Amino acid sequence: MTFDRRITPVRADLADEKLRGQVEAERFSAGTLRRVLTAATPLHRHPSPDAPVDTQAIWGEAVTVYDEHEGWAWVQLHDDGYVGYLRSEALGAPGAEPTHRVSALRTFVYPGPNLKLPHSGWLTLNSKVAVTGIEGDYAQLATGGFAYAPHLSALGTWESDYVAIAERFLHTPYLWGGKTSLGLDCSGLAQTALNAVGIAAPRDSDMQEERLGTPVPVTPGLDGLRRGDLVFWKGHVGLMADATRLIHATGYTMQVLVEPLAVAEERIRLTSYGPISSIKRLPSLGG
C-alpha cells in the first residue's frame, strides 16, 4: 500500500500501532500524548534545524510522540495529522484540557492581570488554552499567566466568515510552512481561516483541493465566482474576497495581499504553477 508520508506515522524502524498489519516496521508504538507549550514551533521533515520545514505547531496543539532522541521528538499533530520532528523542549505534559481558543489575530500573556506588566509570551489565532478563572478583564491560564479575556472564545464558538479571518492577515509576511500571525504560507492562510470557523482543513494545498468543497467551473473569463471560493493551482491556493479579487499569501510579494484574480492568474500561469487546476465552493459562504 502507498501512504502519504506527510500524514502517516511510519518509518523503517517505527510505526504507529494502528498501522500494524498494514506497513512494515521494526517496532510499533501507540505513542504518548503531549501538548505544544510554545507560541509556535516548526515541524521539520528530519531531526535537524536545517531540515525542511513542512508546517508549524502552535500553543495548545495536542501531539502524539512516538520517539524522542537527542532533543527531537517524532510526532503526529492531532489537528491535521501532519507527521514530523519537533524540538522536545517545545512540548509538555497534556495538562488541563483546553477550554478556549485565541480568537484575536494575536494576543499577549502577562504574569498578572495587568496590561502594564511586561508580557511573558504571545499566542496566535486558534491557539488553545485552559482557563481556570477570570480576574477583571483577564483570563487566568492553567499553564500560568493571564490573557485578555475578550481575545479568547470558548471552544466550539466559531467565527462566521473565513474570508474576514483571512483579511485580518493582510500584509502579514510570507513564511514557508508558517501558520501564525507573524508569517504564513498560502495553504497555512487557508487552513487557519477555515479552522477559525470550525472547518477542519488539511494542511497542504493539494490536500485541500482534494477534500474541500464542491467544484465550480473554471471559465475563460473567470466568471461566476463568489466570496469564499477557493482557487487552486498545482502548488498554490487563494480565497476569493469577492467575485473578482483574490486574497492569498504569495512569495511574489512575500506577504498576504488582495489583487484581481485575473492579474494573479496570468502571473501564476506564466511564471510558476501553470493554469488554475480547480475552484471549490464551501457551503458556509457559497450557499
Rank of each mutant, 00 (worst) to 15 (best):
S181G: 14
L182G: 10
G183M: 07
L184R: 03
D185F: 05
C186F: 12
S187K: 08
G188C: 07
T192G: 10
T192Y: 09
A193G: 11
L194G: 03
N195Y: 11
G198Y: 09
I199M: 11
I199E: 05
A201K: 04
A201P: 04
R203E: 08
R203A: 04
D206Q: 15
D206V: 13
M207C: 14
Q208R: 09
E209S: 13
E210L: 15
E210R: 15
R211D: 12
G213N: 12
G213Y: 08
T214H: 14
P215N: 13
V216C: 09
P217W: 04
V218R: 04
T219L: 06
P220G: 08
P220H: 14
P220K: 08
L222R: 06
L225V: 01
R227L: 01
R227M: 04
D229C: 02
F232A: 04
F232W: 04
W233T: 09
W233E: 06
W233G: 05
K234Q: 13
K234R: 15
G235I: 02
H236T: 03
H236N: 08
H236K: 06
V237I: 11
G238F: 02
G238R: 00
L239W: 01
L239F: 07
A243Y: 09
T244A: 12
T244G: 02
T244S: 10
L246W: 03
I247G: 00
I247V: 14
I247C: 03
I247E: 01
I247H: 02
A249F: 00
A249D: 00
G251F: 10
G251N: 11
Y252P: 00
M254R: 13
Q255M: 12
Q255L: 10
V256T: 10
V256Y: 02
L257Q: 10
V258T: 06
V258C: 01
E259L: 06
P260W: 02
A264W: 00
E265C: 04
E265A: 13
E265T: 07
E265G: 01
E265W: 05
E266P: 06
R267H: 14
I268Y: 04
R269E: 14
L270H: 14
L270S: 15
T271M: 14
S272R: 15
Y273N: 14
Y273L: 09
